[in-house]
Design a protein around this nucleic acid. Structure first.
Lengths: 113, 113
DNA sequence: CGGAATCCAATTCGATACTG
DNA sequence: CAGTATCGAATTGGATTCCG
């Protein structure tokens, strides 16, 4: 739901951030949108593991949290484009840090296998 | 379980990282351990919202991922201390970035309320 | 003290089918 | 094209009890 109440005394800010970007696919969505404006089905292609339902839900939550923008074009066939909101852009350093660390981590895991 | 397989083509590293630290309480645990070595019940006090069961589970997962170290002292009464592992320390920049962003975010949310 | 084990409720998630 | 609706399966999470 991404809107739970946390009652720890000190570390809360960490949790607050993870509550926004920690969703199963939110990080990846934000990562992709950082480099481009993307249509719904384009996103699906970029993330083959996500179901349509999940993708929709996560996008809506990100939108509700003002991290991304959903723009609907009144055309036939319909077109919906997603892009970063200004507020979401402030997350950019974090996202790229996650990506960088993850890259090294995957490398390490591979070596051990 | 933190060990799912992700089959996206590009953003995976982001997901890989979030799979490790994105657990409901993992971020906060790591945040606390960054500043100190902490005993089990001490952690519980620091995070009133977590149940014993959950805390145990999350700690075990972090340990399995080599991010933290669990040290058992063969005493009576027993003592178990948790601290950052070397590998976990490499996450420090990310954790503090999350904390910093979260602090600002909470400030913003408060203003809007 | 620091858990493990069990039971049960709530939530999440995927598969499928349908729609403007 | 970009969803929504509905349904079960699976996972998560809390409460409680017991243990070395």
């Amino acid at each position: 739901m991404s809107h739970t109440v946390y009652d720890c005394s000190e570390g809360c800010p960490v949790e607050a951030t993870l509550a926004l970007i920690g969703g199963k696919w939110k990080g990846v969505i934000l990562f992709h949108l950082l480099s481009d404006t993307i249509r719904f089905n384009e996103l699906r292609r970029l993330m083959p593991g996500v179901t349509q339902r999940m993708l929709t839900k996560q996008l809506r939550e990100l939108e509700a949290d003002q991290l991304i923008v959903r723009k609907v074009y009144p055309e036939v066939p319909p077109r919906v484009e997603y892009s970063m909101a200004d507020y979401g852009l402030t997350l950019a350093p974090i996202i790229t840090a996650l990506q960088k660390w993850g890259t090294e981590h995957l490398k390490k895991v591979k070596q051990e296998a």
